[in-house]
Nucleic acid binder design. Structure first.
Lengths: 198, 198
DNA sequence: CGAGGCCTTGACCGCGGTCAATGCCCGTGG
DNA sequence: CCACGGGCATTGACCGCGGTCAAGGCCTCG
């Protein structure tokens, strides 16, 4: 666990710049700071449990997380999220039971936000409405990326795509997790890697 | 080609109910009607071409479409859209080159909307901002559904999921297209089907 | 030093892709 | 009205990719 300054304003600036491309009023800023808090959590913390309703969204200031679900008793990794990115499940956003679990893979610092409060506020506040639109637009693009990646059929294609786009994860995540993320077995990934070095 | 009444108001009602869950002002309605027109187009019409910028989104009143892209010279079906659903590419929404082509599989009636105009309007209009958020939220859920479906690894699992969730397409789309959509060869789909009847 | 986590390597085999032949349906033209 | 051709689906033969099971190596930590 790292030391951290728990005042919101220390961290919220990149977050504001990312999702509010306009000047926000003092009232809007109040809504934001009232419904977002800064948390430090250790590696291994489970933020969201599959099947439960969890009305919070997170924004990673520092750290790494993975989303996964159980398929026939085996954990399947859905995706990883790095610092400076939002985490959560789409179902949380809509107030429904989460399809995935989310776990921290490194000691992390995060913004925790009350989604219900923001959705309610978005019914009347232009800025909040705009904020939520920005978040979900970004998420949509993220998912589409992933959708295209999944259409790569051979394991080699998928691993190559991974190397070209997310190779930074190699240094931070076990090959077992990455294999699951790529939809292949640990053994196949291992063979691929030795084959590609030759 | 069917006969159709080309006045917007005849068709726009379900569309409004779906994306504006609040009373809209006369000005907002003007923005909508100014930037949406009704079109009838025959089967085979290509709405969007892969690689091109196309600043329009569509809403199917009646008909069926498919989105696809070329992979190693072969068409891969990304998804199908039915009547009473929006069509387009996410890149069109963001003003970028489309990754997919969209083609009508049946004679169709559609609302054609100018996305640029709506995005510009959304910078100042609450209702339009809210409208775009609704559309993209819906699309996000749609994509997540598809993402989960793609994680079904065996061809049998994928076809079963298809039967349970989209079997209506069986009557309207060729098995060749469906096989491509499921990520399997036409032959494998054929074998699956004969196997499942026994 | 031993135990457990993680990765690698080998042996085996079944799923599903490719290629090719055949059947069926339907629209078009002789 | 029938014959031919094209589009689509089915079926068989073949085989390679990648999954499973099992063994062995390496590193870290108690």
């Amino acid at each position: 666990m790292k030391e951290f300054d728990d005042s919101i304003m220390t961290y919220i600036d990149p977050f504001l710049k990312r999702y509010f491309n306009r000047d926000i009023t003092h009232e809007d800023l109040m809504v934001i700071t009232d419904n977002i808090s800064v948390k430090a959590m250790p590696k291994g913390t489970v933020l969201i449990k599959e099947g439960e309703i969890h009305n919070y969204g997170y924004f990673l200031i520092e750290g790494l997380s993975r989303s996964f679900y159980l398929k026939n008793g085996v954990e399947v990794n859905f995706w990883f999220d790095r610092e400076n990115n939002p985490i959560g499940s789409l179902e949380s956003y809509f107030g429904r039971e989460s399809k995935v679990s989310v776990e921290l893979l490194e000691d992390s610092i995060l913004l925790k936000s009350d989604i219900n409060a923001f959705r309610k506020e978005a019914e009347v506040s232009f800025a909040t409405n705009y904020f939520l639109r920005s978040v979900i637009e970004e998420y949509a693009q993220f998912m589409e990326q992933r959708l295209y990646a999944l259409q790569y059929k051979t394991s080699k294609e998928r691993y190559k795509y991974f190397l070209e786009n997310e190779s930074d994860l190699l240094r931070r995540v076990s090959l077992t997790h990455i294999a699951s993320y790529l939809g292949i077995s640990r053994e196949t990934l291992s063979r691929l890697r030795s084959e590609m070095i030759l």
